[in-house]
Design a protein around this nucleic acid. Structure first.
Lengths: 172, 172
DNA sequence: CTGATTGCAAACACTTTGCAGCAGA
DNA sequence: TCTGCTGCAAAGTGTTTGCAATCAG
């Protein structure tokens, strides 16, 4: 049998160091409404609720967990609506989806924030978010070399933390 | 309704430009056997078959597709065995899993190869593999800054290719 | 009014697991 | 012989979808 888990502990522990200010609701809501209007979609109480919940997240969150959370808090939103709305929020440029494993969807607010790279401890699964200017430059260079126009990127660095016994659980 | 797909066209088109030589079977098989022995696991015909198939892949491939392919080629391997073996190959350091979307597992041979960063065209889904020395340096720097010891990383850059109408399908 | 939205439950797709018989070492 | 391995089919999970009722604009 394999000796150790192969992927991240199921829930990356979100707290990031480059703790970012939460993006305020009003301006983002305006953006969302503009997007909805443009797409001939409607602004509903459910969508407002989900937007608000999403903006209260300091970092990564899981779709599934968000749905649970809302229902447990007494809000009446179906799972389906949560998923559908997360997609719209993505299309509106407010969220981005992050692929950490093939089990679940992770999302993160991008509007009004800037930390979008991740350093993941292979021992504890802790996720440290950061933003690297150098990375942005590198991305531009690479795209330029290929005649591409950069749109976005995902950078996940796996490493053993000082505390971690550093016993080398391999990561992808 | 949203106007465009939000994630990659289901199957990234694999062909990479930094076309790498296929890793030869014999030495890798030796590595695999050594790993199996160490873990008190057995070397079976199924495992040999899967290793061979995997090594014939020039770049990314999907677990599911590999399983189909093997069966269609007249080989008698169950899906379960394919999945189980892919995990062992990962543990043996021969493969790595890549997270491109939350639909499927993608894998890639790492032993004896070096291109492990991806430039993805947001219009066509084409995946160009490359290897960046600068990226490796950056990763070291970042880890150093956090007192981490780098293990690996995943870098996915999304961009619009010159051909692509570049009409801005957003990517994560 | 009309077309988009919602909740529900069923459908989905990929992956994992339990089990009985098989087979490396 | 003694474990581990295999195939099968069933179970699992997160996400998507069809549909009738409801609601925003």
């Amino acid at each position: 049998m394999a000796n150790e888990p192969r992927v991240l502990p199921s829930v990356p522990k979100v707290p990031n160091e480059a703790q970012q200010p939460l993006t305020p609701y009003e301006p983002l809501c305006a953006i969302f409404r503009r997007y909805l209007h443009k797409e001939k979609l409607k602004f509903t109480p459910e969508r407002a609720l989900i937007l608000e919940a999403v903006l209260s997240k300091p970092g990564l969150f899981q779709a599934e967990a968000l749905a649970d959370e809302l229902r447990k808090t007494g809000h009446r939103v179906s799972r389906a609506t949560v998923y559908r709305t997360l997609n719209h929020l993505q299309d509106a440029g407010i969220l981005k989806q992050v692929f950490f494993d093939n089990k679940q969807s992770y999302f993160e607010v991008i509007a009004g924030r800037q930390a979008n790279d991740y350093l993941i401890c292979v021992d504890t699964g802790q996720v440290i978010e950061f933003s690297s200017q150098r990375m942005k430059q590198l991305r531009e260079e690479i795209c330029r070399e290929h005649g591409f126009e950069a749109v976005s990127h995902q950078l996940h660095i796996y490493g053993a933390s000082p505390q971690g016994r550093g016993q080398g659980r391999r990561e992808t």
